[in-house]
């Protein structure tokens, strides 16, 4: 079976992960090194992606930014999936009062325009990487929760779950060993798309100055710095933009490929 989407997606994300892991060894310059003699140099042999208005090497900054973006994407979605799976399975398995409580709470959370909720929260807390990951995670568990709930609602009527009850398996055992492994598929597809979403969210936040703070380079805050030199230095907007594009594409390809496998 040929799954071009999945293979392409995994290839893109693996390459990016390797780049992120090896950032200190493969980046040609220190990403924070300010060089007065090399301001706004266009892409050249010495600086493959040029330099910014402070003379910092853009390639090195994008390589380090890759780290931040991937970490934020993966951990934020990790938090969201973890919460979503727990709340969704409790909701689906126990039903009744528990279901009403959790699902109405999810509805309330879904009513907020997430981006502005995050903006408001970040404005009160300091905008650190950890805060951003936690906030994105706490505001995006509803999708996974709903998915896992609906899967469990149909699974728990299946005979193998009835058989587990007859064997004497505890509710915890039924949920952990039988329901969640069979319900997790669609959630994983959703999570890969979620990683792309979280990376975009972080980029947006950083662009507004409420995300990752300089001097730590992230794709979002490279872009905000590019804004002031947009007319004279195209490379500072184009390369981070391309990096974001390729990453999102990679995760979306994986999601598409997984969807085909899971069906």
């Amino acid at each position: 079976m040929k799954n071009t989407y999945l293979i392409t997606g995994i290839a893109i994300i693996s390459i990016l992960s390797v780049i992120a892991l090896l950032a200190p060894w493969i980046s040609p310059y220190d990403p924070a090194m300010i060089a007065q003699d090399s301001l706004l140099i266009p892409p050249s042999a010495k600086h493959w992606m040029g330099t910014d208005s402070l003379g910092r090497d853009l390639l090195s900054r994008i390589i380090y930014g890759c780290r931040i973006s991937l970490i934020i994407g993966v951990i934020a979605v990790g938090i969201a999936v973890f919460l979503g799976v727990i709340l969704g399975s409790l909701s689906g398995f126990y039903g009744r009062f528990m279901d009403t409580l959790i699902m109405r709470f999810a509805d309330i959370m879904l009513c907020f325009p997430t981006f502005f909720l995050i903006l408001a929260v970040v404005a009160f807390l300091e905008p650190s990487i950890i805060n951003i990951m936690v906030i994105i995670g706490l505001t995006s568990w509803m999708g996974p929760a709903r998915l896992i709930r609906s899967e469990i609602l149909s699974l728990k009527e299946r005979e193998f779950i009835q058989a587990e009850k007859a064997i004497g398996a505890s509710s915890a055992r039924i949920i952990m060993r039988h329901l969640i492994p069979n319900a997790i598929g669609p959630v994983l597809v959703n999570a890969t798309l979620g990683i792309a979403g979280a990376i975009l969210l972080e980029t947006g936040l950083s662009f507004l100055g409420l995300g990752v703070q300089p001097p730590i380079p992230s794709w979002g805050n490279i872009l905000i710095e590019a804004k002031s030199t947009l007319g004279i230095a195209w490379w500072i907007t184009v390369f981070p933009g391309l990096a974001i594009l390729v990453t999102i594409l990679g995760f979306n390809f994986i999601a598409e490929g997984l969807k085909k496998i899971i069906g």
Partner: peptide, 20 residues
């Protein structure tokens, strides 16, 4: 009770956890 009584269902395609 849970040890000494058991049940076998009609549909064997549905009675086994497909992931185990």
């Amino acid at each position: 009770f849970r040890k000494d009584t058991q049940i076998i269902f009609q549909n064997p395609y549905n009675s086994l956890n497909p992931k185990m």
